[in-house]
Design a protein around this nucleic acid. Structure first.
Length: 465
RNA sequence: GGCCCCGUAGUCUAGCGGCCUAGGACAUUAGCUUCUCAUGCUAAGGACACGAGUUCAAAUCUCGUCGGGGUCACCA
């Protein structure tokens, strides 16, 4: 039974990279009739941000990537919050100490800082000097009795080649001598990520670990821990990094488009974001680029995941999002727009009428109002100076008054006839009309818009002062 | 700096020794459609980082150089 997981930390608003990872966890699990679960990695008390846990659930729900087990809904492997599993980690850390695969370290922060400083001065790699690794049992006991603060470190073997067969990266080798004696239990008794992740993934019977490439360098530590415990190592798949659009570094919070929130507020569709994210690093043999989640579950082949980091391209996301909008049922788009502008109280019937006019003109929901505001209130200013065109509009007014059946076709007919009569080029004629009606040089089709606005309102807008 | 990963157009990629005159998509430019914009359709420009080697043949294999990224915490 395939089991995948997302293990976020409650440290703030979800990052788009988290969703990217969840996408592959979720899809892989679904594809193999497995389960996708969530575990909260809240072992860093210093970085804890209240409320983040809820926001994570909301985000996952928005994308439709709900876990089948989580801290909120529970499950057979509970608890799912690491802060509630402390005794478990303690137990396993003790086990490691007994097996001599870990040891107490009483070094002070000051000593470690100094040591690192010296190492750097000598251009050496900053690594723990294993000072406490060979402490005698007596001394250890004495320190423990005297309540000297300690951490527990893993005892990395001297000369061992650690081989990882990554589902995405392939075979990667590490030499154990380049690996630090990592802290696994902190002075506050909490485990570090490295211990907690290994223990929990094993206990929760996780079979496949998908995560960002930034984790690759710490994976040998995890492999070592699995070996210490004599546990089966789950499959690993290190996903290509998503880079900032300028290519400088991984997608970071410096850029607002790293946050899920950003897309929500701009009216991107979650299904389009997911499609874009999948397409960013994964290639469909048939060259298909547009596929929804269910289709992706059918098509996905892990072997086709790329190996380079990919820059996040907002323009392409816009393109994908535009396609999803164009393919949407009018009623659905109407609902989405109403929901997006729910605090504006737009009249739903009018919005529905405007949908056919704007469906192929907007790329995201937030494009709607800038394009359509004139339907709901008369323009307060014009993008073109109309001061010397009063007479012209008066003539149009007279002409349009005669139109009794206020329908697109008849409005257009009347307008074109007038243009001909006045010997004004259509382009000029309609541009002036467009500006007086909508206030802007760019708008949905004019005749259709005028029908929706209704005769009385249009005539009113033709009178300017 | 050590370790690890990676190098095809501005961006994401296809390519697995001859089918490559290097294919597709976004973006860009031009044209058509047209009352603006958008959609749609058509077309154009634009790439194998560099250098050696292996081979009858290299984007593709090897080595080196250069470049990019990740990571080196009692953070995850």
């Amino acid at each position: 039974m395939v089991r995948t997981r997302i293990a976020p930390s409650p440290t703030g608003y979800p990052h788009i990279g988290t969703i990217y990872q969840v996408l592959f966890d979720y899809v892989y699990a679904k594809q193999h009739n497995g389960k996708f679960i969530m575990r909260l990695e809240d072992t860093d008390q210093a970085r804890f941000v209240p409320g983040s846990e809820d926001v994570i659930y909301k985000s996952l729900e928005w994308f439709g990537l709900n876990p089948e087990e989580s801290p909120k809904i529970g499950g057979p492997y509970k608890p799912y919050r690491q802060s509630e599993r402390l005794p478990i980690y303690q137990k396993y850390a003790k086990e490691l100490i007994e097996k001599k695969h870990a040891y107490y370290c009483f070094c002070t922060k000051e000593r470690l800082d100094e040591m690192r400083k010296e190492q750097q001065a000598k251009k050496m790699n900053p690594m723990y000097d294993k000072h406490c690794r060979n402490l005698g049992q007596k001394e250890v006991n004495k320190n423990l009795e005297n309540k000297i603060p300690f951490v527990i470190r893993m005892a990395v073997p001297e000369n061992q080649t650690i081989i990882l067969n990554d589902l995405i990266v392939g075979e990667v080798k590490f030499e154990s001598k380049t690996i630090d004696d990592q802290v696994i239990i902190k002075a506050d008794g909490y485990p570090t990520y490295h211990l907690a992740v290994v223990v929990d993934d094993h206990l929760m019977e996780i079979t496949h670990i998908f995560r960002g490439r930034e984790w690759l360098p710490s994976t040998p530590k995890h492999v070592l821990l699995y070996q210490f415990f004599e546990w089966k190592i789950p499959e690993h798949g290190h996903l290509p990094l998503i880079l900032n659009s300028d290519g400088k570094g991984k997608l970071s919070k410096r850029f607002n488009h790293a946050s899920v929130d950003y897309y929500h507020h701009l009216g991107y569709l979650p299904e389009a974001i997911l499609n874009y994210l999948a397409n960013l690093v994964w290639f469909h043999e048939g060259g298909k680029e547009i596929y929804d989640l269910n289709e992706f579950i059918k098509l996905f082949d892990i072997k086709k995941i790329g190996s380079q980091g990919a820059r996040f391209d907002l323009q392409k996301l816009d393109w994908v999002n535009g396609i999803y909008i164009r393919n949407m049922k009018q009623e659905t788009l109407n609902e989405k727009i109403m929901d997006f502008y729910k605090d504006k109280n737009l009249p739903k019937d009018i919005v529905l009428k405007t949908i056919p006019l704007i469906q192929e003109r907007i790329k995201k929901l937030s494009d709607y109002l800038p394009l359509c505001e004139f339907f709901f209130k008369a323009p307060e200013k014009y993008e073109v100076d109309l001061a010397n065109k009063k007479d012209f509009f008066k003539q149009v007014h007279q002409e349009l008054e005669k139109v009794t059946d206020w329908k697109t076709g008849l409005i257009g007919e009347s307008l074109i006839n007038l243009a001909k009569k006045l010997e004004i080029k259509n382009s000029q004629f309609f541009m002036d009309m467009r500006v007086v009606i909508t206030g802007k040089k760019i708008s949905p089709p004019l005749n259709e818009s005028m029908e929706i606005l209704e005769k009385e309102e249009c005539l009113r807008r033709l009178t300017i002062d």
